[in-house]
Simulated assay, not measured.
Amino acid sequence: MENLILHVTFDLGVVPVRPEAGPVAAYDYNAAMLARATSAGVPDLFVGRELLAQIQYRNKVLAEFQAKLSRLREGSRRRRRLQAAKGRVLEKLDRRIRHMEHALTKALAELDRKEGIAVAVLGDLTGLRRSAGTGMKGKKANQKINQMAYDRLGSQQGYKNLMRGIRTIFLPEKYTSSTCYACGRRDPSSRRHRGHWKCRRCGFSLQADLNGAGNLLKFRLAKNVVGVPGPVSFHTIRHWRWDRRHNRFVHVSSRAGA
Rank of each mutant, 00 (worst) to 15 (best):
R129P: 07
L90D: 11
R192H: 10
R129N: 07
N215T: 01
V119D: 07
M148Q: 10
L108H: 13
S189L: 13
K92E: 15
H102R: 14
P188K: 00
D94R: 13
G203T: 02
T179S: 07
K137D: 06
G154M: 06
H99M: 05
W197A: 02
Q207K: 14
R186A: 11
K92V: 15
G184F: 03
L128D: 01
N146G: 06
G123C: 05
S205N: 11
V89Q: 10
L171R: 02
A118G: 07
F170V: 11
C199T: 03
L171H: 02
G165H: 03
F170H: 14
Q147E: 09
K174F: 10
N161G: 09
A213T: 03
R113H: 15
Y150H: 05
L128M: 07
S178F: 06
V89K: 12
A109S: 04
L104K: 01
D112S: 15
R194F: 09
D151T: 14
V119E: 09
R192G: 09
T105K: 00
A120G: 02
T179Q: 05
Q156F: 11
M148D: 05
G214A: 03
G158D: 10
Q207W: 12
R113F: 15
L93V: 06
S205E: 13
G212S: 04
N161T: 03
A132S: 10
T134F: 13
K160A: 04
I97W: 13
R186F: 05
G165N: 03
G212T: 04
Y150D: 02
V89C: 09
Y150R: 03
E91G: 15
